[in-house]
Design a protein around this nucleic acid. Sequence first.
DNA 1: CTTGGAAAGTCAACAAGGCTGACATAAACT
DNA 2: AGTTTATGTCAGCCTTGTTGACTTTCCAAG
Lengths: 171, 171
Amino acid sequence: MAENGTGMPPGHGGESLLFLTDDQLRRGIEAMFFAYRGFTADPDRILAEHAYGRAHHRALHFVHRSPGTTVNNLLNILGVTKQSLNRVLRTLIEDGLVSSKVGVKDRRERHLFLTDAGKELEKVLSEAQRKRMRAAYREAGPEAVAGFRKVLLEIMDPEMRKHFDQLKDSM
Amino acid sequence: MAENGTGMPPGHGGESLLFLTDDQLRRGIEAMFFAYRGFTADPDRILAEHAYGRAHHRALHFVHRSPGTTVNNLLNILGVTKQSLNRVLRTLIEDGLVSSKVGVKDRRERHLFLTDAGKELEKVLSEAQRKRMRAAYREAGPEAVAGFRKVLLEIMDPEMRKHFDQLKDSM
DNA sequence: CTTGGAAAGTCAACAAGGCTGACATAAACT
DNA sequence: AGTTTATGTCAGCCTTGTTGACTTTCCAAG
């Protein structure tokens, strides 16, 4: 036992592989768990006031991010079934936060946009979330932030990484 | 408009606050979202084979981490209601993965332990999760990992941070 | 010693948000 | 004309969260 997870005996590897020990990895896993709770806490509180959930927030975020995106594209980004997404999208459309427009080139497709009310809520939600991230970034400093981003990129599934990189273009 | 989120006009602040722009923060938020999906993907697959969910994984993790912990302590760490936790705990106990022992000092309390079967499953789950984290850490390098941990700490709610730090002691 | 209250468990009911399967429609492609 | 694709919708199921009400056990303070 006393497995260090590096596949090498402890004490070997001159480049100091101590950050790859099982204990260090376990701490990172726990940090991700606790941090994600904080990450979603502020938007969750606001959403609850509007009788919405995290699923609505995600839809608002990505429609805001890629105005005119199709339902299918959103499906791939969010990684849920169309039935799940549709339920959320339908309420957002009914409530006048999202508008759905038939495609011009391919009229089977629906292109999604935020209405003014949708932009309003998205802004409130994202500003609450950014506020916490901004404070965290400021405390941690630019180099820590660079490392943070670097590790997160590596944790992603390749397909999710692809979506993440594609969003970059429209920034 | 063109709000940069720093509360300062763009171009000011000699210490390069570019990493605090709203766009940078938004990228960080998206990275967290996509990365968390990857973070949970491997355990989720294994759990599905056993007809368990993420809630079972969390319970197994923290009971493993703090053997003999009480239900109440677990409640605080996980941040759910006792009814939610109880449902999960009950199935784990019925399935012989967790054992619950009446406290000696305070006999109202139940102290939770993993059985051999519970330790087995916890190991499979955590090794799957660590495998991905290990690869990510290795790719990103020790300095990035330090930054990653630093930012995650800052994102946590103070109360969650407290729990996180308390776990450290028993490591 | 009695009683108040904390810790834990249980039952019931409900909601969000995942899932599958089946089916409809419209439009594009071959 | 027939097939595939994009979308929407209905029905039903599961997990995991919630609230509220109630019981049992048992420590501890009056």
